[in-house]
Structures are given as C-alpha cells and as structure tokens.
Simulated scan of single mutants.
Amino acid sequence: MTRIAIIIGSTRPGRNGQAVAEWVHDIARQRSDADYELVDIADYHLPHLDEAAPPSLGQYTQPHTLAWARTIDSFDGYVFVTPEYNHSTSGALKNAIDFLYTEWNNKAAGFVSYGSAGGTRAVEHLRLVMAELQVADVRAQAALSLFTDFTAFTAFTPAPHQADAVTVVLDQVVAWSGALAGLRTAS
C-alpha cells in the first residue's frame, strides 16, 4: 500500500504545526487509499547540516542522518505541514530536507501551510526545492490563515471548507505517488 508521511515542518516551542498536522492526519486516517503516518522533524534532533559529503552522494555518516534517511526513504509521498516565517518555510524544515537527496527522488508532495497570508509564500519556496529533489509537487494546497483558522493566533479552529482542501491535497498526493512508483522501482 502507498505510504504517505505527514511531516510537521516546525520545531518551534508552542508551534501551531503539531495541531495542524494532527488534524490533517485525522482526515487522512478516515481514508483507505494509503497508509498515513505523522513524522515530526523535531524527533530527529537534526543539527545544522553536518555531513561532509553532499547529500546527492548518499555517503551519510551521522546517526541522526541515517535515521532520518531510513524514515524518509520508507514513504512514497509527503504532505508537508509548514509555517510561513519571513515569507518562507521554517529553517528547521529546510535543513531537514537538505540532509537528504535520493530518499526524496521520484515521489510526490503536497502542502498544508499556515501563516498570516495562509503560508502561501512558504509553499512557493518549497515547490522550488522539491523540483531540485525530483519530487513532483501537486497543485492543490490547503492554506490556513492565522486570522480565520486560529483563535488568538494559537488555538487551531479551522474553517469547515479547509477539510475539503486537505482532501484534495491527499487525493492528488496519493495519485501522483502511485503514478511515480515505476520510476522509484526503476531507480
């Protein structure tokens, strides 16, 4: 069965990302088209990139990199839950992505973002990063506003239509993950 990671893209204390990712996971678990798993980058305690060789060579030496690589490699696609910090994604998520290369290749990615502008600028940057990693990013996106989908900017209270947006993201990520399976097998 297709395996999809829902990646919590923030490590910030008091982060909104955990509540958002758990909500996405709750929606996903109601489906039978894939296995969905929460992956929290905070659990991997990744320092700033500390591998001597470029990730594209796959010569990982650090235990945290090896654990992260095993996890990411085990999935067929990803839903990134990302905040928007200063018109981009979190440094922690970008760093976690940059640790690896081949483990991301020929898979699909979707985005659930949040911020004052719905996190859309963070996703714009992530789409460029995904292209370099040979990840097919889907068109659909759930963009959550700190003004309308959170109470006092911290309590997650998504508008009802947002669940529909997440459903479309999941539909597309599962479809594209399946479509890319042949490429993953060939490589």
Score class of each variant (00 low, 15 high):
180 L>S: 05
174 V>R: 11
51 E>A: 04
27 I>W: 01
118 G>W: 00
30 Q>V: 02
111 F>E: 02
174 V>P: 10
133 L>H: 09
108 A>G: 10
100 L>Q: 01
68 W>C: 09
98 D>S: 14
25 H>Y: 05
133 L>M: 13
176 W>S: 07
153 F>H: 13
149 D>A: 05
116 S>L: 15
131 A>H: 04
134 Q>L: 12
112 V>K: 07
181 A>V: 07
18 Q>H: 10
107 K>A: 08
113 S>N: 00
159 A>V: 10
88 S>D: 12
92 A>S: 15
166 V>D: 02
124 E>Y: 07
75 F>N: 14
157 T>H: 09
91 G>I: 04
26 D>R: 13
31 R>Q: 05
18 Q>S: 05
96 A>M: 06
106 N>S: 14
124 E>S: 08
121 R>G: 12
57 L>R: 04
55 P>W: 03
41 I>Q: 00
95 N>S: 12
85 Y>D: 00
124 E>C: 03
63 P>I: 02
71 T>K: 11
119 G>K: 04
126 L>R: 06
77 G>S: 06
6 I>H: 00
55 P>S: 06
16 N>A: 07
101 Y>Q: 14
116 S>V: 08
85 Y>Q: 03
134 Q>K: 10
58 G>Y: 02
155 A>K: 14
175 A>V: 05
53 A>Q: 11
147 F>Y: 06
102 T>V: 04
88 S>T: 13
127 R>W: 02
60 Y>V: 13
167 T>Y: 04
148 T>Y: 05
89 T>M: 13
25 H>F: 15
43 D>A: 13
13 P>K: 10
137 D>S: 15
1 M>C: 09
137 D>A: 12
22 E>Y: 07
74 S>F: 01
83 P>E: 09
29 R>F: 03
30 Q>F: 00
113 S>C: 10
4 I>G: 08
36 Y>W: 01
145 S>M: 07
98 D>Q: 11
117 A>G: 05
48 H>Q: 06
83 P>S: 04
79 V>P: 00
14 G>V: 09
47 P>A: 07
15 R>M: 03
154 T>C: 08
6 I>T: 01
132 E>L: 04
69 A>Y: 05
84 E>P: 12
49 L>T: 14
18 Q>W: 08
84 E>V: 15
76 D>E: 03
10 S>P: 11
83 P>H: 09
159 A>T: 15
6 I>P: 01
54 P>M: 12
154 T>V: 10
26 D>K: 15
2 T>Q: 07
21 A>S: 05
52 A>Y: 10
88 S>W: 11
6 I>W: 02
103 E>Q: 14
117 A>F: 11
120 T>D: 05
8 I>M: 14
39 V>G: 00
64 H>I: 11
23 W>T: 00
110 G>H: 07
158 P>L: 12
108 A>L: 06
122 A>W: 05
25 H>A: 09
174 V>L: 10
58 G>C: 03
97 I>P: 02
119 G>A: 04
146 L>I: 06
161 H>M: 13
30 Q>M: 02
37 E>D: 06
20 V>T: 07
125 H>C: 12
180 L>W: 01
178 G>C: 02
163 A>G: 02
43 D>T: 10
74 S>I: 06
128 L>G: 14
154 T>G: 15
56 S>N: 12
166 V>W: 09
106 N>I: 02
27 I>P: 03
182 G>R: 04
35 D>W: 07
120 T>P: 04
